[in-house]
Design a protein around this nucleic acid. Sequence first.
DNA 1: GTCCGATGTTAATCAACGTTAACAGCACCG
DNA 2: CGGTGCTGTTAACGTTGATTAACATCGGAC
Lengths: 193, 193
Amino acid sequence: MAEATAPPTRRLEILSAAAELFARRGYHGVSIGDLGRAVGLTGPALYRHFRGKEALLAEMLLDISERLLTEGGRRVEAAESPALALDALLRWHIDFALDNPALITVHVRELGNVPQPQRREIRRLQRAYAEEWVKVLRVIHPDAADDRARSATHAVFGLLNSTPHSTGDLSRDAMAGLLHAMASDALTGAFRS
Amino acid sequence: MAEATAPPTRRLEILSAAAELFARRGYHGVSIGDLGRAVGLTGPALYRHFRGKEALLAEMLLDISERLLTEGGRRVEAAESPALALDALLRWHIDFALDNPALITVHVRELGNVPQPQRREIRRLQRAYAEEWVKVLRVIHPDAADDRARSATHAVFGLLNSTPHSTGDLSRDAMAGLLHAMASDALTGAFRS
DNA sequence: GTCCGATGTTAATCAACGTTAACAGCACCG
DNA sequence: CGGTGCTGTTAACGTTGATTAACATCGGAC
């Protein structure tokens, strides 16, 4: 019974619904039953697609981390100057955050609920992504300390990732422009002697 | 039995331990038993001090919101110019975040777990605190749109509240200076035509 | 046409957790 | 002293929730 044909997008459909629910109510605030219901199934049906709830979360965070890192790296390599590389990182992160607010929220909040084998891998990817930023910043500001560049990077992440909590007052483009301006200026401020 | 005399600080002791645990593992990731153990008691003992787990969280968030708002308001009133008022808000928020990283984390993440009568009150206080910032920004930048000031404020909160995730590379003072510089510049960038 | 793997369903299992009950010691007040 | 709150403890209760078992359907390969 159920749907005529189960499309191969079922996994993605579940992941997408899960992201939305996890962002809104938190990982532990969402049951397997809720998750199933969100895609028109019963709870246990999810075990046909994922090993369990933790595995689902792990896959979600892993995917986000990989997307951030690989696309970020790609854009840095394609940039023609360090300043443009930084700009590319900024635009990439802003676009991602504005297009996937739920993913960003989960990515920031729920790492602690991923079990250990995969948790480390996700952290590794997150760190590598941050290092992408640090690397560019260090070229632009050669005599700045590493610590400072790293802390500044995390602060900018905090600024950019705050989008989901800003209850959409501005249009998407206005918000993108605002975030870009603020983050750019924050980064120059971070390295003013 | 137990302690010779139960000091009246017991409630505060519990709240403090709870903040630490909630920040690290999330509200649902901490059991009543964990909470008790953290202060050398068993789980059910907590019911001598709080109505329940939700009430404990509610009290914690209520206290944070009130402290942010009243002290923020106080400093704005004491300031001799709008620019100094903004500076005072910045310093106040930075000090609070650096001195209470766990509280900031919980304040940002766990509002959704507070039951409805008190949830609304906390939101009201949070909004009022944000409006304190918006009000000052609107004096400094009279022809900026309200929306923009509000979004900029939330973005700066995101920047400042990111401290807990920045794994203490810098000293407290260096971090305070960095955050101040970045937030200041971000705010001027937010209103550049 | 039949068989099989993929995808669901409902019913059962098992652990964890919030909360309440019943009971005990201690300090302090008359 | 004798009680009376206050603050603990352990044991019991009831719910919720993740996971698994047993069973059904359907579409496509042969």
